[in-house]
């Protein structure tokens, strides 16, 4: 459950203020599948970063799973990121010198999970995303789709309650992109809240709820009750 109330985020470029988020009020229930669309610079990534605790709003309040997030210390926020949130980025952000398996293992290491458990969980994730053959390959040796699968495996290995994907298919061709979307939707089917930022109307329409943004504000918010 995500509840944003009167969130603002302003960037100052010299003496110019950019209102990246301007009084955002938003409630997303557990297990929802939401897409966020809007023109470039409308504040989509900023919104996602605030939901993912990578960025702090200038004002407003944020409640995640009945916890007020803004008051948490840096360390507590890191813990929330570790345990509740999985990020998927457009440019994958894999660590280039680590293998696919080691990249997937990273969140488990950060959480202090013992080696033995880590191994079996990484194994499971590799299997789930059909990466067994690629386990010991470095990102440079993987295709774009495989890289994004590794990134999704890494985002989900801690079994977070929310997956935040910022243009996850932006660097992939159409076919591979919809395969990756199918993987994400699969997670949603198993109960994870899924929030996807996309420029692709077709992909965006697959979500049960579509949010349109412009100039730091939520312009439209519609649900497909049909699904």
């Amino acid at each position: 459950m995500i509840r944003l109330t009167a969130i603002t985020r302003t960037f100052h470029m010299g003496d110019q203020a950019v209102h990246a988020l301007n009084d955002i009020n938003l409630y997303i229930g557990s297990g929802e599948y939401v897409s966020i669309m809007g023109p470039s610079g409308s504040g989509k990534s900023t919104l996602l970063n605030i939901i993912g605790l990578l960025d702090r709003p200038d004002s407003g309040s944020y409640e995640l799973d009945n916890r007020m997030i803004i008051d948490l210390s840096e360390t507590e926020q890191a813990q929330v990121r570790r345990e509740k949130i999985g990020f998927v980025f457009q440019s994958f952000h894999l660590v280039p010198r680590l293998t696919a398996a080691e990249n997937i293992e990273l969140p488990l290491i950060l959480s202090g999970i013992p080696q033995k458990q880590r191994q079996s969980r990484v194994e499971e994730a590799l299997q789930a995303f059909e990466l067994m053959q690629r386990a010991n390959h470095r990102p440079a040796e993987l295709s774009g789709g495989q890289r994004q699968r590794v990134a999704i495996a890494r985002a989900t290995v801690m079994q977070p309650s929310v997956i935040l994907a910022d243009e996850p298919t932006g660097n992939l061709d159409h076919q591979i992109g919809s395969e990756v979307m199918a993987l994400l939707e699969d997670l949603h089917h198993r109960g994870t809240t899924l929030i996807v930022v996309t420029h692709d109307r077709e992909l965006g329409a697959r979500a049960h709820r579509q949010i349109g943004m412009r100039d730091g504000k939520i312009l439209t918010d519609q649900s497909n009750d049909a699904v």
């Binding site: 840096e74 990121r81 952000h93 950060l110």
Partner: peptide, 16 residues
């Protein structure tokens, strides 16, 4: 830099 950003995104603390 991006790697450090990523580590933080997946839950590393500043101390880590």
């Amino acid at each position: 830099t991006t790697e450090i950003g990523l580590l933080k995104a997946i839950g590393a603390t500043s101390a880590n």
